[in-house]
């Protein structure tokens, strides 16, 4: 690891320092970037330290929402009283991810920008189109137990590893970005991308653009939510399949439902058409199964991950059941209620 270092004094200074150097990267919590540098997967020539920038606050928005600074640590976000009270689905998803140490260091913006944990992406001795475009995908015919079943391409079957982002997708968050051409906002579903034939691009940010905040819309879904994460260990492991489920009831029937999946695609997976099937329905296992059928209609395994299709189906039905019953999965509980 050899790189020059610059401690940014302002957002503008940080953006200028990264924009003028194609080999420069922003660094904040560093929990993923430093790891990738040790593996020689990331080789930045310059690190621009943004940890001293004033992006650590929470701000109420005019529409009753909440704007979260990009440098708020994951743990502070999960335990923030407003998040615990108004966005418990988000708090739960964050606490399902990583370890307490990592959540203390990792930031809100960095969580969005973390890279896949595909074994081949991390192993520089193997071909990987995400790491080395055009070199091939080793996972396609290799060990692909953890890989994508939805939205993959011939070039890449990697998944996005975040839990937090699955909840942000379900809640319909907005990402605030600043770059050399000014500021803009990106709807959460447009922030991460599918691999297509450019799997080296995880998201729609341009070089030099920086996440400055994540905005949550006004709180909804009351007590009817659950984040259900299934993995190979009971804690501190990435999801094989996770489900963020939220339901807004209208009397005895569903007014609106949200279902986002983690661990199954290159981005948190949502399908408004599948969610729409629940509208006006009385919550039931058969109604939830119809949503699962629709969400997974295009699902395709690659051998070792074929099991994820059935696992996802069952997890969707179970998480929607937990949401409907207002008995969300508790992350310290090691049984699924």
């Amino acid at each position: 690891m050899t790189f020059s270092y610059h401690r940014a004094e302002s957002v503008g200074d940080a953006i200028a320092a990264v924009s003028r150097d194609p080999n420069a990267r922003f660094i904040a919590g560093g929990t993923n970037l430093v790891d990738l540098m040790k593996y020689d997967v990331e080789r930045p020539g310059r690190l621009v330290d943004i940890t001293r920038l004033p992006l650590k606050g929470f701000e109420q928005t005019g529409g009753g929402g909440l704007k979260i600074g990009a440098l708020v640590p994951n743990s502070d976000l999960a335990y923030h009283p407003s998040i615990e009270r108004d966005y418990p689905l988000l708090a739960s998803a964050i606490l399902a991810g990583a370890s307490a140490q990592l959540r203390n260091a990792a930031t809100t913006g960095g969580n969005l920008l973390q890279r896949t944990r595909c074994y081949y992406f991390y192993d520089v001795a193997t071909p990987c189109n995400k790491r080395e475009p055009g070199s091939g995908c080793s996972a396609m015919t290799g060990v692909n137990r953890i890989h994508a079943i939805l939205g993959a391409s011939d070039a890449c079957i990697a998944t996005h590893p975040s839990d937090m982002c699955v909840a942000l997708a379900a809640l319909g968050a907005t990402v605030h970005v600043a770059g050399p051409d000014g500021e803009r906002t990106i709807a959460f579903e447009d922030f991460h991308r599918l691999p297509g034939d450019e799997p080296q691009k995880d998201n729609t940010l341009a070089h030099g653009e920086m996440v400055t905040a994540v905005e949550l819309p006004a709180p909804r879904f009351g007590a009817n939510h659950s984040y259900l994460k299934l993995r190979d260990r009971l804690s501190y492991a990435f999801a094989l399949v996770s489900v963020a489920a939220a339901i807004e009831m209208d009397g005895d029937v569903v007014g609106e439902a949200r279902v986002a999946l983690g661990g199954v695609a290159h981005k948190p997976w949502r399908d408004p058409k599948a969610e729409g099937l629940l509208k006006g329905q009385i919550p039931s296992s058969s109604a939830f199964a119809a949503v699962a059928d629709s969400l997974l209609s295009g699902a395709e395994g690659h051998g070792a991950n074929d099991f994820k299709i059935e696992l996802a189906h069952r997890a969707i039905v179970r998480a929607l059941g937990q949401a409907a019953a207002a008995t969300p999965q508790v992350q310290s509980s090691k049984t699924v209620n």
Binding site: I27, G30, T31, D35, K38, S75, Q101, N104, A105
Partner: peptide, 26 residues
């Protein structure tokens, strides 16, 4: 040395972190 085992845990400004993933300069 990859943030997976926790053996390097120290307390920085009151928070436990994996010291292997922190650049000292920061």
């Amino acid at each position: 040395d990859q943030g997976q085992c926790g053996a390097c845990t120290v307390i920085v400004d009151g928070k436990r972190v994996n010291s292997c993933l922190q650049l000292a300069i920061m």
